[in-house]
Computed example of a mutant assay.
Amino acid sequence: MTDDVRRGVIGAGVLGFGFSALIDVVVLHLILRLHHLVSNRYPVSTVPGLRTNVLADGLFSLGAILVMGVGAGLLWRAERRADRPLPVRSLAGAAIIGIGGFDLFDVVVNHALLGLHHSTHGSSYYDPHWFVVSVLVVVAGVLVYRGGDRAGGSGA
Rank of each mutant, 00 (worst) to 15 (best):
V44F: 13
L104G: 06
V109F: 14
V27Y: 14
A72F: 15
L37E: 12
L34S: 09
P48C: 13
L62F: 15
V107F: 05
I31V: 11
P85M: 06
A21P: 01
A64E: 11
P87K: 03
I31Y: 14
R84S: 13
L50I: 02
L28T: 13
N40Q: 05
N110G: 03
A82E: 06
G115K: 06
I23C: 11
L74H: 05
I31F: 11
I97K: 08
R33G: 12
L75S: 09
G58H: 04
L91H: 10
I23K: 09
V38N: 04
G93N: 01
L55M: 07
L22Y: 05
R80M: 03
H36Q: 15
R77V: 06
S39F: 10
T52A: 15
L104E: 08
I96D: 07
N40D: 11
A92C: 09
A64N: 11
G101I: 00
A78G: 05
I99S: 08
G58W: 06
L74C: 06
P48H: 07
F60V: 03
L50W: 08
R41E: 15
L28I: 12
V88G: 00
L22A: 15
G69I: 08
L50F: 08
D24S: 11
V88K: 09
S45M: 13
V107T: 13
H29P: 04
V67P: 01
G93I: 10
D83M: 10
H111D: 02
R51E: 14
G115H: 04
Y42L: 14
G63P: 04
A92N: 09
G115V: 04
S61K: 04
V25N: 08
N40K: 01
R77F: 00
D24H: 02
L91E: 09
H35S: 00
P87L: 06
V25S: 01
A82L: 03
H111R: 01
S39W: 04
I97F: 10
T52Q: 11
R41Y: 11
G93V: 04
Y42N: 09
T52L: 14
N110P: 00
V67E: 01
R84D: 00
S90P: 00
V108N: 05
P87S: 05
V70L: 15
D24L: 10
R41K: 13
V54I: 12
A56L: 11
R77I: 03
Y42P: 08
R89P: 00
P43S: 13
L37K: 02
V38C: 10
V107G: 12
G98I: 00
D24P: 01
R33V: 11
A92F: 02
S45V: 06
L113C: 06
Y42R: 09
L62R: 10
R77G: 04
G73P: 14
V27A: 12
G98W: 01
V47D: 13
H111A: 09
L22P: 00
R84G: 02
D103E: 15
R80Y: 05
A112C: 02
H117E: 07
L34A: 04
A92H: 08
I23Q: 12
L66A: 14
M68S: 14
A21S: 12
E79F: 00
R41M: 13
A94I: 08
L86K: 03
A21H: 02
A72S: 14
D83W: 02
I96N: 04
